[in-house]
Design a protein around this nucleic acid. Structure first.
Length: 488
RNA sequence: GCCCCCAUCGUCUAGAGGCCUAGGACGCCACCCUUUCAAGGUGGAGAUCACCGGUUCGAAUCCGGUUGGGGGCACCA
């Protein structure tokens, strides 16, 4: 896998990495991570860190490459950052120059732009016209005295290029349509198409699995491979992940940074499971798989040719499945970063069973548990008639109901303040007043949590404790009576 | 403009000539369960397999074309 650190780990890059990982593990191969940072202007250390950290987060590991951002490389074909391999590229470029497979190009950006416009005007493919190929020694001497620096272009033989894509089958291009392309800039920095080919050979890469956006670049790579006398690797091009409008997934239209999903509390297990099925399926109706199970079942040949829309609803569903499958301790641990510091670890562990089934993302837990750390005043500020009154009930009637619940609970010792006991007492109180349990619980829920939607009422009361529950019931009572409606 | 790739419910997909009156999942709707919200259970709507031709006794599956969509054509990666 060879990501470019010009942005945080992208969903598409993550899936390509995953497919590479699954393939390597499935066939028992060696998985290599290489950082493509030849574009020094756009590559940053922060992005490299984001990519490596999030790949690790997903559970993807590699046999060769930088093991940590800015850290040591592992593997015997390093260094694994292209910015540290410039000598190799320079050597290979010289070799190409000497064999005549490449040549210097002195054209300026303005001249090239002019040629491009001419082609466009004549409705031709915008390709290089080979002008510098016909230069005389005198021309070259003149450019040199002018101080112009030449770029290096590959002389592309006009031949048909065909290769057997592991996913798409046989694909054929006509390289006569391709112009001689630049492989080293005038400033000496080599370009992507060149370094990728040089590195794949140097690192012994046998299988190149990448996005479909590189399919039409492959003939360039093969031309380079032939010019350099390298062995041709196998290629596999996976279709792209799409925005809902079926265009290539982009930051503009979708949330593309893995780290953003991580911050919202998506589980790496869910993300991996989801990503794996975006363009592949085991051919059965099973759909929940761990990373190891995926590696066991993954087949490149079963990867789809068509693009797949990123469906957030489905990710949400899977995330819920994985959240619900976690044991209390595990979920508590994962929830910790998403919960208020004021909530101690013991309370987190106790609240987990109450909220587990209500979570789509870990970050959703915050809203569900705030009532535990809010002050009685903060909760009280949320009391209002709309929320507290059941249908067809007046404030006075509701106040009476809350008062009866309060009476039922007041006699309990703090130690007896358990969900079971609370429920029994409250149901009894509701019964005695002739109220439906649901109606009776509504104002209690609002009183205790400040919300109409909350974790189960009695479990919440138990966690809150006797004193705070009674205080909040009193607060609600005050509010209901203050409404000033005469008693029924 | 040129080149390449692709095409099954809204979405992810099963399907490799007869098992398909096209299956599953998400989402949606209804009902059940129920202290809210969820979760869970049951059921339902939803695809003339983009279209047109061909091959075949038989096509979602093979072939050709059309249409539609996507990607690529940089001294970006």
């Amino acid at each position: 896998m060879a990501p470019s650190p010009t942005g945080p780990l992208h969903i598409g890059t993550a899936r390509t990495s995953l497919y590479n990982y699954l393939f390597a593990r499935h066939v028992g191969g060696t998985y290599v991570l290489r950082i493509e940072d030849t574009d020094t202007a756009r590559s940053t250390a922060d992005d490299e860190r984001d990519i490596i950290d999030n790949l690790h987060w997903l559970g993807i590991s590699w046999d060769e490459g930088p093991q940590a951002a800015g850290g040591e490389d592992i593997g015997s074909f390093g260094p694994y950052r292209q910015s540290q391999r410039m000598d190799l590229y320079a050597r290979e470029a010289t070799r190409l120059l000497e064999s005549g497979a490449a040549y210097h190009c002195w054209c300026t950006p303005e001249e090239l732009e002019g040629v491009r416009r001419e082609h466009e005007a004549r409705k031709e493919a915008p390709r290089y016209n080979g002008r510098c190929l016909r230069l005389t020694d005198a021309d070259r001497a003149r450019f040199e005295t002018e101080g112009r620096q030449p770029a290096i272009r590959l002389r592309v033989p006009p031949e048909a290029i065909r290769f057997d894509d592991l996913i798409r089958g046989e694909v054929e291009f006509d390289n006569a349509l391709l112009g001689d392309f630049v492989i080293v800039r005038a400033n000496g920095v080599p370009l992507y198409h060149f370094v990728v080919v040089v590195d794949d050979e140097a690192m012994g890469i046998t299988d190149v699995i990448r996005g479909e956006d590189h399919l039409s670049n492959t003939p360039k790579h093969i031309a380079l491979i032939r010019a350099l006398g390298y062995a041709e690797p196998r290629f596999a091009h996976i279709s792209l992940i799409l925005n809902p409008d079926r265009t290539k997934m982009s930051k503009r239209k979708s949330q593309t940074a893995i780290t953003a999903y991580r911050e919202q509390g998506y589980l790496p297990e869910a993300m991996v499971n989801f990503l794996a099925f975006l363009g592949w399926s085991p051919g059965t109706e099973e759909e929940i798989f761990t990373l190891d199970q995926l590696a066991e079942r993954f087949e490149l040949g079963a990867v789809h040719k068509g693009g797949a829309v990123f469906d957030q609803d489905r990710l949400d569903f899977l995330n819920g499945v994985y959240i619900r499958s976690l044991a209390d301790q595990q979920l508590a641990l994962r929830l910790r970063p998403f919960l208020p510091d004021a909530l101690d670890d013991a309370s987190v562990l106790r609240v987990v069973p109450l909220i587990r089934e209500r979570l789509v993302r870990l970050a959703d837990a915050g809203e569900l548990v705030v009532f535990l750390v809010e002050t009685d005043e903060q909760v009280g500020a949320r009391y209002d008639a709309d929320a507290m009154l059941p249908k067809q009930r007046t404030p006075a009637e509701t106040a009476a109901a809350v008062a009866s619940a309060r009476d039922a609970l007041e006699g309990l010792e703090a130690a007896d303040f358990s969900a079971d006991v609370l429920e029994t007492r409250c149901r009894q109180a509701a019964d005695e007043m002739g109220w439906k349990a649901g109606d009776f619980f509504r104002p209690l829920r609002v009183a205790v949590t400040g919300r109409t939607v909350s974790p189960p009422l009695f479990g919440s009361m138990e966690l809150l404790g006797r004193d705070r529950v009674l205080a909040r019931l009193d607060g609600a009572l005050g509010k209901l009576t203050a409404e000033g409606v005469p008693t029924a």
